[in-house]
Amino acid sequence: MMTRIVIVDDDQHIAELIEVYLKNEGYEIEKAGDGLEALKLIERAPADLIILDIMMPRMDGLELCKHIRKTNQVPILMISAKVEDMDKIVGLMTGADDYMSKPFNPLELTARVKALLRRANYKSLVTEEDVIQIGSLEVDKQSHTVMAAGVVIKLTAIEFNILFLLAKNRGRVFASEEIFEKIWNEDGTGSNKTVMVHISNLRDKIEAALPGEVIIQTVWGVGYKIEK
């Protein structure tokens, strides 16, 4: 079965450019010109990955991302002409897995897509059964689920991988750059803000399920760890 990617961008030229490169890699492509049109495509048939522009009519990319994340943890690559760090942070806080600024190199975008799909297809990489208990939190690598008091906490693939990395190495402090290199498999230089946003999202979800219970600790000036 072909991997299905939905491109959501009101700039037809950019959408078609992305389509050409990804079709050459063997992916099935569908395009939408705004968030509402994209929702119909996604509801009709699930996507394996979504490439999402921020600035669009009717429903913009941020609103669409929020809507998707209510029920779906599909990998989302956000693209935007906005280049400020705060725009990237807002995109990641909304639930995107990765962010690229326009104009972008189509070959780099293709590489980012492949990396996101590799991380999402975790089941093919699982070689052992691992269930880690951290206080009231249960992290199951085999099923790729996190539970608190019997209730599933919905995490993105990246959020789960960060949590599992820290849980598997309890007591060890990981710098942001090291977390980025291990999870993204890319050079971690300048990755502090990206990792910080994903850690923040992860903490918010855990806090919502386990009020008052601190799972991920910050070691100021060094990085992050799980001690329990």
Rank of each mutant, 00 (worst) to 15 (best):
K123T: 00
N161D: 15
I51K: 05
I89F: 03
E84F: 07
Q133N: 14
E129S: 14
M59P: 09
V83C: 12
P103E: 09
M93G: 15
E129W: 04
A81L: 08
A120H: 12
M56P: 11
P57L: 02
N105R: 04
P103C: 05
K154N: 11
A81D: 11
P103D: 09
A120T: 10
D87H: 15
P75I: 04
L92H: 01
M147N: 11
L165I: 12
I50L: 11
N121K: 04
E108F: 07
I158H: 05
V113I: 01
V74P: 06
V146H: 06
H67S: 13
A157D: 14
M78H: 02
C65E: 09
S124L: 00
D60C: 06
I76L: 14
H144R: 09
E108R: 07
E63K: 11
F164N: 13
T110A: 14
S101R: 00
L166E: 12
N105K: 09
D53M: 06
F104A: 08
M56T: 11
L163E: 01
C65Y: 09
L77S: 06
M100E: 09
G61Q: 02
D60P: 08
L64T: 10
A149D: 15
T110F: 02
I134N: 03
A149S: 15
I153Q: 04
D85T: 13
M55K: 13
K66I: 11
I132F: 00
L49Y: 00
N169R: 04
P106W: 06
K123R: 13
R119A: 12
Y99W: 05
G61V: 05
D85L: 13
R58Y: 13
C65A: 10
V113K: 03
S101H: 06
M78D: 07
L166H: 05
E63D: 15
K168S: 15
K82L: 14
V151Y: 02
M93E: 15
D85H: 03
M59Y: 07
V113C: 08
Q73Y: 04
S136G: 10
V113R: 03
P106R: 00
D97T: 11
E84P: 03
T156D: 15
D140C: 11
P103T: 06
M78T: 10
I76R: 09
V139D: 07
E84D: 15
D98F: 10
